[in-house]
Design a binder for these strands. Structure first.
Length: 576
DNA sequence: GCCGTTTTCGGCCCGACTGTTTTCAGTCG
């Protein structure tokens, strides 16, 4: 799976790059869109595109003769000639300008052609030197927006999205686990704790002799540079500029090392304090008697915690947010797990902006062992999707038709509504009431005042047909701030009206985020952990939503899509 | 560049918002 995903991802990235470069050069907008569409389709495709012959490649929606040829050329030669040609004309830094929110291909092209700007740094310098002032279409507000966008980008501080880190870790762990003499290998660090972005990736392995593991590690194809190489620790930088540390420990020290390298630093400080008070000393090598220096325990994390008078603490809780105190009181939450999730309540198909068909999405849901599955395509007020009542009803018929093939899976017909500035949604109540489930989300007017946004969300909660507030803060990691709202008021309204808050699992959203979940659960709110999947493959993101929910201390009972269908349906009736 | 119970051309995702203009270009969802 990991490997297959990467081949498709490679092609998706290349086609998207080609689309971006075409748009910068002012190429035909429809051609640009064709490449973007093909990129998304390949990225979301369920088969490994490197294994497909020409005919089956062209069966991927949006892939025709020309793009199929380019994909084949890439797998045959390792490059795409036409991409190389356009790369030679446009520096990579110009494309990187497009990562700045509010800065698209036209402005990037203008900045490059008129001022020779080809990096974010040069752009920031140029703004401070007031060199943008004479540029057509650029005013003071544009400068301000660019600087804010750059600040958002830099907030991520070189950190990597959770899914990128996860996939990289999975690949490295799989590779190293096969090395002779490797007794254990896992990822640790902030990835094990499911933080929303990852700084450095920490891989931990156990072996008697570390040399074969270190050799294999430094020889991985994705390694661009070996930063440090030792017997216990080796650090590399990947071709994408990401630092990965491998630590190899004797298997006897596994538990102590895993505990130490999982962090967080703040959690470990608390744990070591407890050790000191008990006359012990904790390090990555084990728990030792402070006086005699004799090893007490080190083989498993459970033993280490137990010897300190604590139950094992799940990694997502290890942030020094009261988990040690809760553990001491015997009040650690029994965290929701991916296995607890019985179904997804927010997904899309190619009827709107998804890339997989309804049949493929449903088949994949059945394959995952879901008990229920909601298809919730976009409602008409999102103009790009050109939705209509007729299309929705036709989809409902199609859903009914496919349902017969999966007797163990209950299909729910839903929609993702748009909450307008007044808090109203797309359809009147009588039509909404015909859906099994309605998600309602903000997709426009992100910059209303806090007061107006709060009122807007409250109004949506009070709609008797709105079951779930989708991606409640609408933030995009590294791209868009959370909306300004009095979340306490919103959470109170959700609890009162029987409206669930979504934990959107998309790695660039993770919305609600962990702190907001901790806040919201104090109001007795219910949650829904959804994928918002736009393809079969993106159904996999569920783990990130569950990890985020765990960081928010959620138990299965607080999450409506862990419930049996009957209890879920009762909740979705919302007292109607 | 893709696609076709419109089949080899002529459409294709469209409307709103923002900031810049002085009638509109660029970006976004």
């Amino acid at each position: 799976m990991g490997n297959m995903a990467r081949r498709n991802d490679e092609v998706e990235a290349l086609l998207q790059e080609y689309a971006d470069l075409l748009s910068i050069t002012g190429g035909d907008a429809f051609k640009v869109r064709a490449y973007e569409r093909a990129a998304r389709a390949v990225g979301g495709h369920h088969e490994d595109v490197s294994t497909l012959d020409a005919k089956r490649l062209r069966a991927v929606p949006g892939v025709g003769r020309s793009i199929a040829d380019k994909v084949a050329e890439y797998f045959r030669t390792g490059t795409i000639r036409s991409l190389e040609e356009v790369r030679a004309r446009i520096p990579a830094g110009v494309r990187e300008l497009m990562a700045i929110p509010t800065l698209g291909p036209r402005k990037a092209a203008l900045l490059y052609h008129d001022l020779g700007i080809s990096s974010v740094e040069e752009l920031v310098d140029a703004i401070h030197e007031e060199r943008l002032r004479d540029l057509k279409g650029f005013g003071p507000k544009t400068e301000e927006n660019i600087l804010h966008g750059v600040a958002l980008l830099r907030q991520a501080g070189g950190r990597v999205p959770l899914d990128d880190a996860w996939e990289l870790a999975a690949e490295i762990v799989a590779e190293l686990s096969g090395v002779s003499g490797c007794l254990r290998c896992v990822h640790a660090g902030s990835l094990r704790r499911f933080r929303e972005t990852i700084g450095d990736l920490d891989i931990l392995a156990a072996a008697d002799d570390s040399a074969p593991l270190m050799d294999a590690f430094t020889r991985l194809p994705l390694v661009a540079e070996v930063i440090a190489r030792g017997a216990k620790k080796t650090s590399v930088r990947t071709t994408k500029g990401f630092q990965v540390d491998l630590r190899v420990v004797p298997v006897q020290a596994w538990g102590a090392a895993l505990q130490y390298f999982t962090g967080s630093k703040e959690h470990n400080v608390r744990i070591r304090e407890r050790a000191v008070h008990a006359g012990l000393k904790l390090s990555e090598y084990g728990l030792f008697d402070a006086e005699s220096g004799e090893l007490v325990v080190s083989e498993t994390e459970e033993e280490v915690y137990a010897r300190l008078g604590l139950p094992w603490i799940p990694p997502p809780l290890r942030e020094d947010r009261g988990e040690v105190e809760a553990a001491l009181r015997g009040e650690l939450p029994e965290l929701v797990t991916e296995e607890d999730i019985r179904g997804d309540l927010h997904t899309h198909t190619d009827l709107t902006d998804g890339v997989s068909t309804l049949e493929d999405m449903v088949g994949a849901a059945a394959g995952r062992g879901h008990e229920y599955f909601a298809v919730t395509d976009h409602a008409p007020n999102l103009p790009m999707v050109r939705m209509s009542d007729e299309k929705m009803l036709a989809q409902r018929e199609r859903l009914r038709a496919v349902a017969g093939e999966y007797p163990a899976l209950t299909l729910l017909h839903g929609t993702e509504l748009n909450i307008d500035p007044e808090g109203e949604v797309d359809w009147p109540e009588d039509f909404l009431a015909t859906f099994d489930v309605c998600v309602a989300s903000i997709h426009s007017h992100f910059t209303l005042s806090g007061k107006d946004t709060t009122r807007r969300l409250l109004r949506a909660c009070e709609n008797p047909c709105v079951n779930i507030i989708g991606h409640p803060t609408t933030r995009l990691l590294g791209r868009r701030d959370a909306i300004d709202a009095d979340l306490g008021e919103v959470f109170r309204a959700c609890a009162r009206t029987g409206t669930a808050l979504e934990i959107n699992s998309a790695p660039d959203r993770l919305d609600l985020r962990d702190e907001d979940i901790l806040h919201a659960r104090r109001y007795g709110v219910k949650f829904a952990i959804n994928t918002d999947a736009h393809s079969v493959r993106s159904l996999d993101v569920l783990r990130y939503g569950v990890g985020t929910a765990q960081r928010g201390w959620l138990t299965a009972d607080e999450v409506i899509n862990t419930w049996p269908l009957g209890r879920l349906r009762e909740f979705l009736r919302k007292g109607r």
